[in-house]
Simulated scan of single mutants.
Amino acid sequence: MGSAACVAVLGEPAIRSGKVIALLNQKGGAGKTTLSTHLAGAFARQGRRVTLIDADPQGSALDWAQRRHQNGQARLYGVFGLARDTLHWEVPQIASQADHVVIDGPPRVASLARSALLAADLVLIPVQPSAYDVWATQEMVTLIQEAQVFRPCLRAAFVINRRVVGTVIGREARAALADQPFATLRADIAQRIAFADCVAAGKLVWEVAPKGAAAREVAALADAVEEALQ
């Protein structure tokens, strides 16, 4: 079932053209904003029309965009705050003028999360490679399954984030996630100081170290997301 069919289930006009990717996890600190800003940037670098929606009341993506502007960095894509539970009505119009819309979702706000789910084509669930974080995804899994009743074509996948380089914890997390109803993307993101440095500067990792490991990981993640959208 295509995007238009999903929209019809909600009684919305079938005007969407761009793909909507929501990063959601009810547990805070999973790295949604870092992944959202970098994923949007990776698509923009490919020449796509990209909009990033900050649906987190904390406004971390908006803060990042403001730092970027203050530091004189070039604008790569638009960042807009839309932390309200009407996302599923407003995002289709935004998507009609974009190739990709990335939603940086809220933690612990179920009404906003549900609205983002109803707006999305693909939900990415960032999860840190620990048993506790894997267990904590169950609430999000339940919300997605509830949304799929209304939007059967909604897809979902886990993204392992902040994997510690040189440890087996990442592989263990991937094995633990194998029992979940959604797949885990083949690309994961390691815990790297480059990501933390970029937040303060309003930059993206390839602007700091274009040939670095972090930049390669983001590019691989963007490719994996494109595959998941097929």
Rank of each mutant, 00 (worst) to 15 (best):
V79A: 08
L82W: 01
L82A: 12
D85F: 00
T86Q: 11
H88Y: 08
H88P: 02
H88E: 10
H88S: 11
W89G: 12
E90G: 07
E90I: 10
E90P: 04
P92N: 06
P92Y: 00
P92L: 09
S96H: 02
S96V: 09
Q97P: 00
Q97T: 15
A98M: 05
D99N: 02
H100Q: 12
H100E: 11
V101M: 04
V102Y: 01
G105L: 08
G105R: 10
P107G: 12
P107W: 03
P107K: 09
P107S: 14
P107E: 03
R108T: 13
R108S: 13
V109D: 14
S111G: 13
S111K: 14
A113P: 04
A113I: 14
R114A: 13
R114D: 11
S115M: 04
A116D: 07
L118T: 11
A119L: 04
A120Y: 00
A120W: 02
A120L: 07
D121S: 07
D121W: 00
V123C: 02
L124Y: 08
I125N: 05
I125G: 05
I125T: 06
Q128H: 00
P129T: 05
P129K: 03
S130E: 04
A131P: 14
D133M: 08
V134S: 05
V134Q: 07
T137H: 05
Q138I: 11
E139Y: 09
E139I: 12
M140A: 08
L143E: 09
